[in-house]
Amino acid sequence: MTGFDFSVIPNAVPFLLQGLGLSLGLTAVAMAGGMALGLIIAIARLSRFRYLAMAAALYVNGFRAVPLILVIFWFYFLVPLLLGRPVGALYSVLIAFVMFEGAYYSEIIRAGLKSVRPGQWQAAKASGMTYLQTIRLVVLPQALRKMAPLMVTQGVVLFQDTSLVYVVSLHDFMTSASIVANTQNRIVELYVFAALVYFALCTAGGALAQRLNRDRHHAH
């Protein structure tokens, strides 16, 4: 192999875009689902019902104790067993990511809820609001401002982690890049390009997180 030939990349763009689409789509679904699930788990963990709080803690610590790649494998084999029919790699991966991210997002949300000072909870409670009204109307809106930067940062990590779906033969961006690299025998070109794309997207995400962080400080 003599010299580099980056012309391989424009030819591979449609294929690479498909992979990027999967990575971004998976990130979006896992973020949205993970936040929704994380909110429920966080509320359960702060609940005064002890067994509910313990179950939620077990969930969080359980998922945080195992690597994501193992969770992806599990759900690939488990979900069809539980449902009694095949669901395909994509759906099993979506479920695995949402469940896994839910554990991480719940910790961010729990810290956010707890960062709102007790007087705010008391004021809402004193006015006759229920526990869930207090969280929805008073605590969560204040917590969201503090949580937003961490949530975006978690999203960036998540985006990078989507490359793990190769283990169940899905083509995310990284996997697509390495397929092209190997079939076209242009390893260096494709991996440099992949690195640049990750760098650009993750830097943008990091900048967004920083921006949110600044806004938060201005707001107070």
Partner: peptide
Amino acid sequence: AARIRSRVGMVFQHFELYPH
């Protein structure tokens, strides 16, 4: 309890207005 509580007003040392 919430129903009765809503009929007893409370004012705090640090106001506790909702900042958002």
